[in-house]
Write a protein that binds this DNA or RNA. Structure first.
Length: 231
DNA sequence: AAAGTGGGCCAACGATGTGG
DNA sequence: CCACATCGTTGGCCCACTTT
């Protein structure tokens, strides 16, 4: 078989489609990773000043990761958000209780002090229960973080990452289960009983008779991966 | 026809580990 | 603390199919 020679990066005729494509894929991956680590809190790292330089922001991020990693190993999925005026900040999905004082002091030590000795950044931790993410917050959180991947931003050029994640996040592999049922109702029941093994708290579901698909997502448990059942 | 999925290939980049 | 090296992963590209 013959292959068309690859266009060089950024020079494809389908540039835009490819970009969309990659965005969608990254988005999906981010969602998977959030679920995989059971992310339930969102940390936001911000700058006091209007930071617009992606490169130095990334340096800060890197330094932050290193320092924090020394104290405790942590898993994260992070994205950069860009506000209207171009100000950058980080959204980081993490799991479990955070040591706020530690995060804060590290972030601030990375940024250093301003001319008058003022702190140059802030840290905000969103607790799922107190800030509205609630019981099925994991879904919202994942979706919230993921949306920044497909969003186009000025600060992101060709070849630049859409998101960041710690190593060692294993996205669980897919389990396929054959269902022995012939009706939609039967399928729904079967799917629920499978999902019940992982606990049904905070479950989200969606189904479409026309397409013949049931989609369930279990929230709080560590092993709560998405599952889909076509039949 | 148009849009979406999934896989494979390859290059470039980032996360990490190491040694100066 | 910084520079360098390694290894794994992402991102860009294309193809082959399936869905809409």
């Amino acid at each position: 078989m013959k292959r068309k020679p690859h266009a060089r990066r950024g020079e494809s005729e389908k540039r835009e489609e490819n970009d969309d494509d990659a965005g969608r894929r990254a988005k999906k991956k981010v969602r998977e990773c959030c679920k995989a680590i059971g992310a339930d809190r969102m940390v936001t790292l911000t700058y006091r000043e209007n930071m617009v330089d992606r490169e130095t922001a990334l340096k800060h991020w890197k330094a932050f990761c290193r320092k924090l990693g020394k104290h405790k190993q942590f898993h994260y999925v992070a994205v950069i958000e860009e506000q209207e005026r171009g100000a950058l900040h980080f959204h980081v999905a993490v799991t479990g209780r955070q040591m706020y004082a530690l995060l804060r002091s590290i972030w601030q030590s990375v940024l250093g002090r301003g001319p008058d000795g003022q702190q140059m950044g802030q840290v905000n931790v969103r607790d799922p229960h107190r800030f509205g993410f609630g019981q099925n917050g994991a879904h919202k959180l994942a979706a919230y973080i993921a949306k920044y991947c497909s969003k186009q931003m000025q600060c992101r050029a060709l070849d630049q990452k859409r998101y960041f994640r710690s190593k060692g996040i294993v996205v669980p592999e897919v389990d396929s289960v054959r269902l022995h049922c012939t009706t939609m109702l039967g399928a729904v029941q079967a799917a629920f009983s499978i999902a019940a093994q992982f606990g049904l708290e905070g479950i989200q579901s969606w189904c479409n008779n026309g397409l013949g698909v049931v989609w369930l997502s279990t929230a709080p448990r560590p092993k709560g991966a998405d599952m889909e059942c076509p039949f």
